[in-house]
Design a protein around this nucleic acid. Structure first.
Lengths: 243, 243
DNA sequence: CGCGGGTTTGAGAGTGTTCAATCTGTGTGG
DNA sequence: CCACACAGATTGAACACTCTCAAACCCGCG
């Protein structure tokens, strides 16, 4: 079921900067497809040469790289409104993979048409760059976690980051709980920790009463302590572009 | 001493894609200054709100973030031709800092004029985005190192990456040696290791005969073993844009 | 000659990993 | 409705890697 950009509910969320009618109409001509896939679907795979571009419309996904021996590093998680595949479309082959964590919907933009966006609507080109820079800032923050923080601090930082991103999207309930479709090996692969140690670290923080985490749902109990633990202090997110 | 873009020797290097006369002329109008600074100069600092954009013209630098308690993570290293400050110019305040490792020259582009680049020369806007995506790929690769590789593998991967980047710039001598202005605490901060352990790891790899590393210069002795150790396999770099 | 930055070394303490097993909840087939 | 398979979560124990602390060393410089 195709969703026209003019009728798109996602872009009307307060998290996103509004666009002009003309920009939206142009994007609608760019959008080739509206794709629905199940959890665990590979959207882009490492080495793929013809990856298209996507906006995540609903659901969760993640971007990752694997080493030849199979070890996997999750680079960052994707939430609705995130733009996918810029790197992959600019280089010959994609250096990373993208996989869904939940059932998810995507707006598909053919890679051939990206250039027309730069050529014809500079404002949109600028926003594409903005989204690229924003994605990089997520990876930066992740690298800081993995390089500098210990296990407990990493877990705390990850939870806070995702909580904040979900909050700006209106996905957090009044009790500070939110859908959390990662399992512990996703967390381990994102934080550069072993599965076992991830499990023990989560158990410890849970016993300390910082959050509850049952399959599929995370509830933050003590944000203050989490923030102190992770040295995570961040302003509210300003409205951002969406393509 | 100002260098006009029309006379710029750097962009004529085979590492870079050539530009049209018109593009170069436009860039020359954009370029406000040609800046020379000494080693250890802070070019952009975390939180800075009016950071300009730069192309590194000569020398080495690095991009980093620090935690409130002072721990520092180097995100990636900058070599001639790298474009600096895209993130910083798009968000309100810079989330990272940039500092020189050697004496270095920069082409300075005022942040106010970036928009005119998008508006007036789509080809250049595209290349700015390309450079942003490329920088992200460097951070990705670093995150893979820090998240997945042990100390020896990280050191090997770092050396190989820098060696390769220097090679495409023609900075590597026939004996596979190249200028290497990092000290061991830079290496430690980039790899997420303590200084002491970095030192011991380097000493071990050196004893194994994989490379020699005296102050300021790195020579690769056994690239095969280094590559196997780091599981680092990568194609030659294709010519890339330069702004 | 003394100082300071950077490098090197040793030793003990932790943090995090690996291996191995158990447990739990869910879905499938009979 | 039960037996069974399976993926994910949990736990324990031994081990390895990395960190911290502390001290020495090296070299260029004033």
């Amino acid at each position: 079921m195709r969703v026209r950009c003019q009728e798109c509910g996602l872009r009307r969320q307060p998290a996103f900067k509004p666009k002009t009618e003309a920009e939206i109409a142009f994007l609608d001509t760019l959008k080739r497809d509206h794709l629905t896939v199940s959890a665990g679907t590979s959207l882009i795979h490492q080495g793929q040469e013809d990856a298209d571009l996507y906006t995540l419309f609903s659901g969760w996904a993640f971007r990752y790289k694997t080493l030849p021996d199979g070890r996997r590093q999750i680079l960052h998680f994707l939430l609705p409104g995130d733009f996918i595949g810029l790197q992959a479309s600019m280089f010959g082959a994609s250096l990373y993979g993208v996989e869904t964590l939940t059932e998810a919907e995507f707006c598909v933009f053919p890679r051939q048409r990206v250039w027309s966006l730069f050529e014809r609507v500079p404002q949109l080109a600028f926003e594409v760059s903005w989204l690229g820079a924003h994605e990089e800032s997520l990876v930066d923050e992740n690298l800081v976690s993995v390089g500098l923080r210990n296990a407990a601090e990493r877990v705390a930082a990850l939870i806070l980051t995702l909580h904040k991103r979900c909050r700006t999207l209106g996905l957090v309930a009044n009790d500070d709980s939110f859908a959390f479709p990662l399992n512990q090996s996703h967390i381990a692969d994102a934080l550069g920790l072993s599965l076992v140690h991830t499990n023990k670290t989560i158990a410890r923080l849970r016993r300390l009463g910082l959050f509850t985490f049952t399959t599929g749902r995370m509830q933050i109990i003590n944000p203050r302590v989490l923030e102190r633990l992770a040295q995570y202090y961040d302003d509210e997110l300003a409205p951002r572009p969406i393509i």
